[in-house]
């Protein structure tokens, strides 16, 4: 069903999410303890290097202001209301886009995934549409919506939709036949099986899709603001850049990075909560 080039299409295999649901999955590589210390030490080294390089003249301070300067600028920005409005706009574009993509992808994925003929019928179209980079839609977005938030939404939805949709398809296909037969033998009808068997079986995949989609959605939200000029952190970066405020550009970049980290941490926490019964999560506690 998959073509050999679609390895990004199934991040569920490998380290991301066990295809069979019986291997250790995400999060297992990041336990706390000595590794956390090592991680902190690594970040400290990185910051130190960033501080020293511009100060010793190894890198021009015009292009890379030292870490302390960037962080101070960021600290000042945190006190400015406009910054938080931009953060809000970015998060709104991200969240709304992700929500739309999620709803559409889950609905369509369940319908298409449960009907093999429909799945085959749509497979080649999906394989064609999916690899189109969202940024290629920028001219279209401008044409349709100008600098409106809907431009951002279009890009965000398009990019994250496929991430989630593909995962849902795999998830729906990965229902254990024994579980399905058990449900059927106890008289569970089609809808009941979707609710009690297919949905929980697909949930690990759905959440992997959400995690990937959330990351992509943030990238696209910032990209749209940066290139189209719709309001948000991306636009702030563009403005700072044209004003030659290098330290501010870096400060805003750091801010988007921080949002990315928070988003990822949030989705992982959600995964751990919702999938507490799943091997990938419970392995951390029990084994």
């Amino acid at each position: 069903m998959t073509t050999p080039t679609t390895d990004t299409a199934r991040p569920t295999t490998g380290s991301q999410r066990p295809a069979e649901g019986r291997v250790r999955g995400p999060g297992a590589a990041f336990p706390f303890g000595s590794n956390a210390l090592l991680g902190i030490a690594g970040s400290a080294c990185f910051l130190l290097l960033w501080e020293i390089a511009p100060r010793t003249g190894a890198v021009s301070a015009t292009y890379l202001p030292p870490a302390s300067e960037v962080l101070t600028t960021l600290g000042e920005r945190l006190l400015v209301a406009g910054f938080w409005v931009a953060v809000g706009d970015t998060l709104a574009g991200w969240g709304l886009g992700l929500a739309i993509a999620f709803t559409a992808a889950v609905t369509l994925g369940f319908v298409v995934g449960s009907v093999p003929a429909l799945r085959t019928f749509t497979a080649s179209t999906v394989e064609f549409l999916r690899p189109i980079p969202s940024v290629a839609l920028i001219p279209l977005a401008i044409l349709l919506y100008g600098t409106d938030i809907r431009s951002t939404l279009l890009l965000v939805v398009y990019a994250s939709f496929w991430q989630i949709y593909i995962q849902v398809l795999y998830g729906v296909a990965d229902v254990d036949p024994v579980a399905d037969q058990t449900a059927r033998s106890y008289g569970l009808g089609r809808l009941a099986r979707i609710r009690y068997v297919v949905w929980p079986s697909a949930l690990p995949y759905v959440l992997t899709g959400v995690r990937l989609g959330a990351a992509v959605a943030l990238i696209l939200a910032v990209t749209a603001q940066l290139t189209i000029g719709s309001p948000g952190l991306g636009q702030e970066i563009a403005v700072a850049q044209s004003g030659g405020a290098t330290a501010l550009v870096y400060a805003l970049i750091v801010a988007t990075g921080a949002i990315g980290v928070l988003v990822n941490v949030g989705v992982r926490a959600l995964e751990r909560r919702v999938l507490h019964w799943h091997t990938s999560v419970r392995g951390e506690i029990a084994a």
């Binding site: 024994v178 058990t182 033998s185 929980p200």
Partner: peptide
């Protein structure tokens, strides 16, 4: 309706969620 089945693969037959 009035029949139950216990499957050979009980581990997979129980819903882990």
């Amino acid at each position: 309706r009035d029949m139950s089945v216990v499957f050979q693969e009980y581990g997979r037959s129980l819903f882990s969620w």
